[in-house]
Design a protein around this nucleic acid. Sequence first.
RNA 1: GCCCGGGUGGCGGAAUUGGCAGACGCGCUCGACUUAAGAUCGAGUUCCGAAAGGAAUGAGAGUUCGAUUCUCUCCCCGGGCACCA
Length: 872
Amino acid sequence: MKLLMRSYDHRKIEKKWQAKWERGKCYHAKEGAGGKKFYALIEFPYLSGDGLHVGHIRSNTAMDIIARKRRAEGHEVLYPIGWDGFGLPTENYAIKTGKSPVLVTKQNTNTFRRQLKSLGFSFDWSREINTTDPAYYKWTQWIFLQFFKDGLAYKKKQAINWCPKDLIGLANEEVVDGHCERCGTPVEKREKEQWMLAITKYADRLDKDLDTVDYLERIKIQQRNWIGRSEGTQIKFEIRSTKSETNSKSEIQRPKQERIEVFTTRADTLFGATYIVLAPEIANEKFKSKNEKSQFKIQNWGEVEKYIEQVKKKTEIQRTEEGKEKTGVEIKGIKAINPATKEEIPVWIADYVLPDYGTGAIMAVPAHDERDFQFAKKFNLPVRIVVCPEYPAPKCPVLDRAYIGPGHLVGSGTFDGLTNEEAKKKIAKAVGAKPVISYKLRDWVFSRQRYWGEPIPLIHCDMCGYVPVAEKDLPVKLPVVKNYKPTATGESPLAAITKWVTVKCPKCKGVARRETDTMPNWAGSSWYYLRYLDPKNKKEFVGKEKLAYWSHSSEKLPAIPLRGISRRETSYKLQAGPVSWYNGGMEHTTLHLLYSRFWHKFLYDKGFVSTSEPYAKRTSNGLILAEGGVKMSKSKGNVINPDEIVERYGADTLRIYEMFMGPFDQPVVWSTESIIGSRRFLERVWRLGERVTEHRAWSTEHGAQNTEHRTRSTEATDTTVQTALHQTIKKVSEDIETMRFNTAISQLMIFTNALEKASAVSREAYQTLLRLLAPFAPHVTEELWGKCGKKQSIHTESWPVVSSALEGTAVATIVIQVNGKKRAILQLKNGATEGEVREAATALPEVKKWLGESTIRKVIHLPNKLMNIVVD
RNA sequence: GCCCGGGUGGCGGAAUUGGCAGACGCGCUCGACUUAAGAUCGAGUUCCGAAAGGAAUGAGAGUUCGAUUCUCUCCCCGGGCACCA
């Protein structure tokens, strides 16, 4: 085992400074007068029983570095911390151990708080919040009621994703490959009454407004894909009973016109639509009663119904596992009329058509859609080519797969010869189709049938329906119960507590029942960043002044390309905040990040917040994987406990190590073996202090060891050190902004190496090194700063700036190439002309050798950088 | 299948308007110090070659005086979505 340097005792130093900072309230956001404000945010930890993960430290350290740099740059910084507590892991743990979730939460909070404090993050601890605190979830409930009052929270009976192990309904976002995101059990479908939040009402703005925020491009792309905006048209198909054609006697068999509307993005292929397909669920709604009333005589209704039943029973996985193998049933007795060709085409039902996308019905164009093609092949339906890549089409080929590319129209009457893009609009217009935008995004299933969540603050009265709990009666507190176990019936355990459930209706005072479903664990985190601004407010979820104060905290953002915004309507004022910079995990992109944007937009529409987006900037860090490149997990026993690393190497070393491991936005593999490098670096910085000779503190403490160094000159005369110093200031400053922490640290190491090799270590150079290193390693730099005789904290120092006078160098290093291969390096004066460089270069023996007798064809010269001499 | 990343020494990784490939760190080798080990310091460490030199950034082609970087074709790894009409 490696031994660590003894004079740098991280155990003593780190505890000492943490206590001092806390006593001095050094990192409390001051809320003084004006000035630049900066709100740095990390995702507050979920209070799992496993304690802090090295992944938390990666994200927290990054934002801590940025927060500390901003303070040094004169910003007023808010960097808060809190706890996300509700949800299944805590509840399951409580059930397993028999402890109450409240107690478990308290214990976990204490663990997390201790661990986070041991790492020296500059959090404002006076603003701690906890989503399970009634004083907090009162406002989560209050916001829910605002949704309810606006009709955006509604109850709906529908087939939902049900996890048979966790006994809980899941949101679409929580289902991964047909399995429960949490426990991996295959998800079943269940008909249940659920509370829903109408996030789809905001689909358009959630997509469009991404243009106004500075998120990593891949985050935007992932959200856009999830929202799944697509522009198309709805086309009406008339439905006729086939019997009515052959038997014209009966009036009943000549019903009023019936229509099916389909959604398509390929109106250009309408002439190739050879059948239409309904989602089974839609067919049931549409034709069941009509069939019974014999408006339409469907000859095989029994068969159709049987298929509908089969589909209902299928689980998500069964549906996906079957993959491309299509199933379906023709509805016999009716036909649809293709509005372009006026032909009668058959009507089918099949589960490859989804009930909740578009209209739940499609026109099938087998020649130009892969799924329709497979279906047509299986059921022997006609394939009609209407788009050809070449025009005029050479001859009609037999397709072995659908052609989905662009081309010119064929077999489409007067539209022949048009490009399919032109035809899209013209055909849609000709058949009176209206433009429609569809989204993949679904409304958010918002109820959970479990104990450990915010109770939904509604009361059901037989007379009045659902009535909101009066604002003065909030919060609706979770009752203390003996049994938290979920019930297999799909009812929350709260339903069993008669005393809690039975209440008076707030409206009519009759006997009524409380809603017993609770909210999903995403509720509390959808607005927590607002509560940090005013965590103790009893009257409002956030005070107006506090909100206004921090809502202007967003930095001037760099110009970001506004993708397509010119074409889209921007009728409302767009502004992002209060959060200036939010870092977190990629895994929350389509969950928490999307949900909280939705909540914020709603609050904005209600006038409660003044910005249309909550986060001006969002970045994301890669995962930390266990050695071997696998995920850390308790079951694999490869979880790194940060406590042990802090104890052995110190918080500063761990922070440096995690930032140095690799590119911040990419996954990195943990290597305990490599940590020593970060520790050695800090030890070298420590030892370097002993060579800053003119200071008394060092000379008294370490006098005996460094008499040799003290005799050397202390003047900062070494220009290479000066140049390196300014390069370092520049590089570190830039790299922090772009989150390239690994190369920032590498530069600090390079500079440290340079100082070690220098004949003398100037006080200026050393202290600047400490200031640049301080955000990364706050404790050891604070200690060394004190040793330099400073009375004030290093973390109140201003950020070093590059002095432009020292940036340029007098000497340029020029690479000399012959035929593109490096052959020599020249040191010449800055700004040497091509002639001068050429003369000097060709004089060099190592260049001469390569030039030989051959003639020079060409010379490429990049001033101060490179010369390439091209010969035969 | 579609959409994002990524592929560079024994390992983590540097290198951008195309211009010194392998910075920085880990590991390893040799040396100094030490009774010894560790720590520390010094030298070395892509491959082939004794050297001169040559080859090399997943594979192959192209553009260029010059390609890790740009273009095309393909392979592999990670992540996301997945019958979304």
